Amino acid sequence: MSISRREFGMSVLAAGVVAAGFGIQRASAAAKYRLRYGTAFPNSHPGAKRIMEAAEAIKKTTDGLVELQVYPSSQLGGEADMFSQTRSGALDFMSTSGVNQTVVPVGGINAVAFAFESYDKVWAAMDGDLGNHVRAAFGKAGLHVMPKSLDNGYRNITSSAKPIVTPDDLKGFKIRVPGNPLWVTLFKTLGASPTPIDFGELYAALQTKIVDGEENPLALIQSAKLYEVQKYISLTGHIWDGHYIFANGDKWASLPPDAQKAITEALSQAADLERQDIQHFNEQVSAEMTNSGVTINKVDTKPFRDALRNGGYYSDWKAKFGPEAWALLEKYSGPL
C-alpha cells in the first residue's frame, strides 16, 4: 500500500515545521533520504535485480521520500571493503556472506560444510532461531540485519584442468575462496590450497591461472561467466551460502519508523522473490553451461564429509562457535 505525503506529515505552516511522519525538517517536497546499497552480485544476478526492484518499490511506497541507490558488480569495492564501509557509515547498506565472520564469528555458521541437505532446512534455520541468534550478534556489533537473507545457493567446485570427484582430487589444488576462515579451514582439511581473492577479481584470476579453480553457486558461475574460463563443474554442494542484508546501525536508527517499515517490507519481499529465482535459475543454467562446452559431474559427498570429520573440522568449529550456537545449528542440520 502506498504511503502518502500526508501520512509522512506535511510542512504546511512555515519553513522549519517538522514533518511529523518522517521526523525530518524539510523546506520543500523534494527532500529525500538518499541511501546507498552496494553488492558484488552482477547486474544480471537475481540478487541484484530484485534489490533494484525493491528500490523502486521503496521510492513508490514513500512517495519519493526515500531513495535507495543500488550499486551492483562491486562498483563500490570488494565485499570486504563494502562491509567495512557499512560498519563505518560510509555506506548505508550492503549484502554479503563470507567476510562478515571476521567481525562476528557466528555470522558464518551457516557455512559449516554439508550442514543443510535441503532448502527446507536452510530456511527453517535462517528465518528461525539460528538466524535470529546471528542477527542479534550483528546488532551488538553496530549493524542492523534485515529479517530475511538472500539466497546465494549451494556452492560447487569448478576447475580448469580436471573434474573434482573425490577428496584426493583436491590435494594441492589451488582454489579461490572468499576471505572467511570456514572456507579456508574446509579446503585445508581436504588438502587443497585455499586462496582468498575478491569476487570482482576472480574472472581474471581464473583466466590467468593464478588459481586452478573456485567454488560458487551455479547462478553466480553463470551470471559472472566464470564457465568461460573453467572446463568442469562438480556438484559438491558443500556449503549453503546466503547473503545477509546489512545496514549501518546508526543510519538505520536515524530513520523514522515509517521509513524503516517501508524498507524492511520491500527488502523482505525482494528476498522471497530472489529465493524463488535462484531455484528456477539453477534448473536452467546447468543446461546452458553444458551446451557451452562445460562438463558437469555429480559427486558422492560422503567421502568429503568423512574426511572433514576425521580431520577434526566439525569438532574444531563446534569449539569455536560454542555450545549455544552449535546446538541451534544442529537443531536444523541434525548431528554433525
Score class of each variant (00 low, 15 high):
S4I: 03
F8R: 01
F8W: 08
G9I: 01
G16A: 08
A20L: 13
F22M: 12
F22V: 08
R26E: 10
S28Q: 06
A31V: 07
A31T: 04
A31K: 10
R36G: 09
T39I: 06
S44P: 15
A48S: 15
K49R: 14
I51L: 08
A57M: 13
T62K: 06
P72F: 03
G77V: 04
G77F: 11
A80G: 10
T86V: 14
L91Y: 00
T96R: 02
S97I: 00
G98Q: 02
V103M: 09
V104K: 07
V112Y: 01
E117N: 15
S118T: 05
D120P: 12
K121N: 04
A136P: 01
A137W: 03
D151L: 01
T158V: 13
A161R: 05
P178F: 00
P181L: 02
W183P: 08
T185D: 06
L186A: 01
S193Q: 12
T195A: 05
L202Q: 03
G213P: 06
K231C: 09
K231M: 10
Y232E: 10
Y232W: 11
H243T: 01
W252H: 03
W252R: 06
P256W: 08
P256L: 11
P256Q: 08
K261N: 10
A271R: 01
L273Y: 13
R275V: 07
F281T: 03
M289P: 14
S292M: 06
D300A: 14
R305S: 10
G311T: 02
G311D: 00
P323R: 04
P323H: 05
E330C: 15
E330G: 15
E330P: 13
G334I: 08
